[in-house]
Amino acid sequence: MAWNEPGGKNNDPWKNKGGRDQGPPDLDDIFKNLFGKFSKGGGGDGSSGGKSLGGMGITVILVLLAVVWVISGFYTIREAERGVVLRFGEFSQFVEPGLRWKPTFVDEVIPVDVQSISSMSSEGSMLTEDENVVSVEMEVQYRIVEPYKYRFAVTNPEQSLSQALNSAIRYVVGHSKMDDILTRGREAARQQVWQELEGIINPYDMGISIVDINFKDARPPDAVRAAFDDAIAAQEDEQRFIREAEAYSREIEPRARGQVNRMAEEAQAYKERVTLEARGEIARFEELLPQYNAAPEVTRQRIYLETMEQVYQNTTKIMIDNKGSGNMMYLPLDKILENQSNQLPRANSRSTLEGLQQNNISTSQSNNSTPSTLRSDRNRQGRN
């Protein structure tokens, strides 16, 4: 009959063992018996055997503890970090990046990042020199240069730096006007905060270096924010117009210089052309002077005919004053040339014109023209 069937209570292996009810074995009793065997020599197998087994157990435990102690001493310092080693709480040395070992419970290593740039912001409402309230927000960027001083020069370096930044901002804003903080004086305020912050933290020798300070925002009170926004927009427009004017000036100035150079070159060319033409006229008159001296009347008559030929080439109507008869002759050359254009070449029409001019001249000479009449004719020619 199975022990768990009805009527099989006496067959329960955990009860009635040794004449009394007994439950499952206790784990505490098992471990106590096990350690007792190591300490007493295996349950009474002899005094020499018990001592050897007990010493072996202690040795194994000590070896295991030593291995754990050695393994727990290995640590790694990253590339951007430097390790500050404290031996029994006192500074011992710096540790370079890499895999290192330290005696546990003797040395303590504190890794400090010395390459990364950290940032910290400060914001608050402050009173300006002209008794206006502005909300200013700035951000400081810093880097750790001396790990030991950063860890032990002050109790809390982050809090100390935050308080120093807040104090520097309030000092600068309190000695500045509201318009300067909100508009064109931001860069000057940023530089002043930087200088003031360095002056505050240098005596503490915190082991940090200020990399930069950013002027993130400056806002007026909500009641006058719209007016200040308009003022800032107007100043930005002013700067934009100034830049546009400077750009236009840089663009138009080379163009004007080019026009000046072109006009100067044109004037120089005109000067040379007029000079050459004048010299040509001088040469022509110098060649004509001997001919005039040899035959003045013939030369004057030839010059007159050549001049009249040039004048009549551009004239379609000619009026001839015949003083001898008191009549005025009208020659419609445009009509004559128009009628003869389909029959005669242009060269024949020009010869016809010359013939008419010669006939006119001969007629004027046959009408007892005096030298004074010729001079009057030349005077009319000059007026024409």
Score class of each variant (00 low, 15 high):
D321I: 15
S349Q: 12
Q357E: 03
A295Y: 08
P332L: 01
T307S: 12
Y330A: 04
M329Y: 14
L356F: 08
L356A: 06
S366Q: 13
E297S: 11
E297I: 11
L337C: 09
N327T: 13
L356Y: 02
Q301S: 10
M328Q: 13
S362V: 00
L337Y: 05
Y304F: 15
M328L: 15
L333E: 12
Q365T: 03
L344K: 10
D334P: 00
V298N: 11
T307N: 13
A347K: 11
G326F: 04
G324T: 07
Y330D: 02
T352C: 00
D334V: 06
Y312T: 07
L305Q: 14
Q340W: 06
Q365S: 04
M329K: 13
N339D: 03
T363I: 08
K323V: 05
M319A: 12
R300I: 15
N293M: 15
M328E: 09
I303S: 11
N348L: 07
L305C: 04
K335T: 09
G355V: 03
K317F: 10
N339V: 05
N367P: 02
E306A: 14
K323A: 11
K317E: 09
T315R: 08
N359T: 15
A347D: 09
K323H: 15
N314L: 12
E306L: 13
I318F: 01
N360E: 02
D321S: 10
Y312W: 11
L305V: 13
R302G: 04
Q313V: 02
Y304P: 02
R302D: 02
S362E: 07
I303D: 05
Q357W: 08
E297P: 01
T307D: 09
G324R: 10
Y330L: 10
I318N: 01
I318V: 11
T316K: 09
R350S: 01
L331F: 07
S364E: 06
Q340A: 10
T315L: 05
I336N: 02
P296I: 05
T299R: 07
I320E: 05
D334A: 07
N342K: 14
S349K: 06
I336H: 01
A295R: 15
I361T: 13
L353P: 00
G324Q: 12
I361C: 03
A295W: 06
L356H: 02
R300N: 08
A347H: 05
G355Y: 05
